[in-house]
Amino acid sequence: MRIELMVNGDPVSRLVEGSESLLDLLRNDLGLVGTKWGCLTGDCGACTVLVNSEPVVSCLKACAQLDGSTVTTIEGLTPTHGLSDLQQAFVDHFATQCGFCTPGMIMAAEALVNSGVPADEAAIREGLSGNLCRCTGYNKIVDAVMSVIEQRNA
C-alpha cells in the first residue's frame, strides 16, 4: 500500500507492506540513521521518535498506519544551526556518554517536557523509564531534563 507522510517537514511517499516498521523506513530507506535500535522488541527505547507529537518506539510502529502522519526524528528536532534547548542541556549536564541511547532519550524527553510533566524527579524518572541507558546512571539525564522543564516554565 502507499503511504504519504511528513518526515521532519519533508513529504515522503512510499509503497510499504505490513511487516515494515517505521524504524526500517527511517534507517534503511530514508537514511535517517540518527534513530538507533537496541532490541527491536520495544524494550530499550533507543528507536523512539515522535509520531504526531507523541513518542513511539519506531521498531514496533507499522508503516502502514502512518498515512497522513507527521514524524519527527532526532534529525528533525535538531535546528539548522546549533542545538535545541534540550540537546544543549544534555551537552551541558554531561548527560551523554556513549551516546547510543541519546537520540531516543532526547525524543522521549522532548515529548515528556511537552506533556506538561512537573519539575519533579520522580515524575521525570517515571516518564523516561522506557529508555534504557547503560552508561550514565541517569542522574545527569534527569538533571538535564529538569533544567529544561524549569527554563521553559520560567
Partner: peptide, 10 residues
C-alpha cells in the same frame, strides 16, 4: 564531552 554535540544531534 567533545563529542556531545554530535551525539545529542544523532
Amino acid at each position: 564531552k567533545l563529542d556531545a554535540p554530535d551525539k545529542v544531534s544523532g
